[in-house]
Amino acid sequence: MEYFIQQLINGLTLGSIYGLIAIGYTMVYGIIGMINFAHGDIFTVGAYVALAVILLLGISGATGATMLVLALLLVLVISMVFTAVWGWTVERIAYRPLRGSFRLAPLITAIGMSIVLQNFIQVTQGARVKPIQPIISGGIPLFDGRSDGGIIVQLSWMQLLIIVSTFVLMVGFTFLITKTALGRSQRACEQDQKMAALLGVDVDKTISLTFVMGAALAAVAGLMFLLLYGVLDFYIGFLAGIKAFTAAVLGGIGSLPGAMLGGIVLGLIEVFWSAYFSVEYKDVAAFSILAIVLIFMPSGLLGKPEVEKV
């Protein structure tokens, strides 16, 4: 039982990171119907910028609690700004000129941009793995099962930070999309870009802002990944990106809560499979379950089924 709860916490943490990246995929798909494969690499950029700023500020495990919170917030803001600029630029130079051409063109460019970003990071940052010292350690022991031959279930500060900030971001984001003028115009562009333009909505700007928002969330995920695992290489974005994309599809691509749910489900599957079966087959299990879900629910867990009117 203790083991189960511990794995649940671990799965939620991993799932939160997947979910945050998945939102970037799902929002872009929702508004322009393309898969932005470069999004995973934007996540890598976010993690690297965070690493650079952490080293520059000299943040370490010895930093005091208040200072640490402020410093990490600063790190977060800086890496969000960087990834936002990257996201905006990629859209502006690589995707916008191709809007309105045939569907495969932006897809191919997206794969191209992904490779460009990956190689850029490899060349400028080196191909070697970059480690940092753990910054946040310790946690809350939830209960001690040692007397019954079990283990201590612990919610580490790091995990708490990840789960809580993901939750806060999700609430903020849902509010942004459902209640504000920007969110409304995003949904309007999703349904009918031409009509939105005729009502005075600047469609290009709305799409740019969508990329910026997705990229900023990827920076949050990047920082969390760095703090959780403590190592980076230029390739992390590839696998994380594929997983997050899977999460977005699993949840129903185009749906915001779906992306988050898909991320958490994927994280839980991975962690539980590793814990109870074999760790080597965790990706096989995750992707098999994806295939099975899509066979029975083609539009994902929360996606709207596509009804064809005749």
């Binding site: 942004l176 504000t180 003028a181 920007l182 409304r184 115009s185 309007a188 005075g200 909505v201």
Partner: peptide, 18 residues
């Protein structure tokens, strides 16, 4: 949605809105 522009201006690109 048809009143997007005055609302966007007032919301200061959603910051004030948030």
């Amino acid at each position: 949605v048809a009143q997007h522009n005055p609302l966007m201006r007032a919301s200061g690109f959603s910051i004030a809105g948030l």
